[in-house]
Design a protein around this nucleic acid. Structure first.
Lengths: 283, 283
DNA sequence: CAGTGGTCTAGACCACCAA
DNA sequence: TGGTGGTCTAGACCACTGC
């Protein structure tokens, strides 16, 4: 296997296939395959990207569950009939995307929202005077105000990739830090994947909501987009947060996505920013 | 040079130095040296991190200017007496940090704020109905309201790593999009590095302010931290932005850093979020 | 001690760009 | 056509973890 470029064997590229010095490579069982079945000829896709896609597929199909170890680089290399270095580069990218977590000497693990370290991976609100060591002032107290089934409005449907009128679950909850109500959240979930979710279940679970989604509904949030605005609350919102209706609040509209950029949650948060701030690092 | 680990030669590590099969490596001219001269024994630092540090040092000292090409990987490898792969990994990280930009077939370039593509690298405000193709609705109109020399308050001094009373430059400007005043910014700069900056010079320059800082003051902003809050404007701010004093606005407090995490700018922005929103991607 | 990820090297070939 | 970054491989050795 010296100086033999696997790329040409595995890709349906513009470049014509070259004769194979070792034809078994072309006949190998379960070789990498890319998604672009018929139309669209992508200009070029390196091998490690294809391997990345295959690993992603396994993650998506639940072959390895959140928190579990995935096979070693060496094993994956054998499975996909590529070198360890190629698998490494694929895993590097998946780790950079926070889909996998490498731990030297132990293995590579499927990322989860239930990890000890970063309790709320998507929450950027921080206390102004960060006294505590880690995240904030300990875990928040959570009150689920309501959770009910409804029909998607045009807006919710658009955000979740549904049709208006499709069934969705809507929940509202209040988060307190050190007893002070600070975040009021409304969220909408597609009813299908979250069948059986109730206010009681939301209240019962201790830990991040996204961790519960993983454990109980097999839905993993992988990334999110947020739109921030300064707004004034309505009377109900003001009452729940314990502020006047003239208090400016930070509105955070989030769409969270699973694999394949499939939107799975719309969330609208109202953050009090008199004692906290939303922190963002730019580079 | 087979199977010879350079690490041991270049590091003052806890591990004892091992006999060198090829002593010339230890005598090589101008080898990598790390910053931790005396005290502090860092547990471990791989070679490519040291190379990264050396490249960073060259960037910092202006050996290569923004927009210029740096030497090829092969040249750098010869210069630092390491393999090309090691240089590659160092450059990979610097590119991930947006300090360098790789362009296949052309070379590796020093990143600049003056690039065509992403006009405002640190500006996250976007129009709600993003019609335009690239960033927003074309370049903003900018009015420099004022720019004067003053003494740093305790707060400004803390943010910029100065002492209270040290001279700073303070400027205020207003940005309009499609004629609508949308952003009001106050900014503070240390007087030393920005000696000679005037309102007139700020107005004259076309393009991102950070690009001017690079070109005219040799100060490159590398990363920034932002703290966001919802606030109400005072009378002056409201007037400049053309809103009432009851209009909630997004307050964005930014500290921008050059190399070595040295803070070089404090900026307070007030963003109107009735027609725009602050966008943030989480992953 | 064996197994995992992490580092480093060396060499081959490919894709892209400019002259 | 030559030079640059990009990909892929192969093999050696190191650091860390857990049995």
């Amino acid at each position: 296997m010296i100086g033999h470029n696997f790329q040409q064997d595995r890709l349906s590229m513009a470049t014509a296939a070259r004769p194979l010095p070792q034809p078994d490579a072309a006949l190998a069982a379960g070789p990498p395959q890319t998604a672009w079945a018929a139309g669209q000829t992508p200009a070029f896709s390196p091998l490690y990207q294809q391997i990345k896609g295959l690993i992603l597929q396994s993650l998506q199909q639940g072959e390895w569950k959140p928190g579990e170890v995935i096979p070693s680089e060496f094993d994956l290399a054998a499975r996909y009939k590529v070198s360890q270095g190629t698998v490494r580069k694929a895993i590097d990218e998946l780790a950079a995307d926070n889909l996998l977590v490498r731990r030297q000497g132990r293995g590579t693990f499927v990322a989860t929202h239930a990890e000890q370290q970063v309790r709320y991976r998507f929450l950027r609100l921080q206390p102004d005077h960060g006294s505590g060591d880690s995240d904030g002032e300990g875990p928040a107290e959570r009150d689920v105000v309501e959770c009910r089934r409804q029909r998607a409005s045009a807006e919710v449907a658009r955000a979740l990739g549904l049709r208006a009128g499709d069934p969705v679950l809507q929940a509202r909850r209040l988060l307190r830090f050190a007893g002070v109500p600070t975040i009021l959240e409304d969220l909408w979930l597609p009813a299908g994947p979250f069948k059986g979710l109730t206010a009681e279940r939301l209240s019962r679970y201790h830990g991040p909501m996204y961790a519960m989604f993983e454990a109980e509904f097999n839905v993993r949030m992988v990334r999110a987009d947020e739109k921030l605005r300064a707004v004034l609350p309505d009377e109900t919102q003001a009452r729940l947060l314990g502020v006047t209706a003239a208090t400016p609040l930070l509105s955070v509209e989030r769409i969270a996505y699973t694999y394949n950029d499939a939107p799975m949650e719309l969330r609208r948060g109202l953050y009090r920013t008199d004692t906290h701030h939303y922190r963002n690092q730019l580079n």
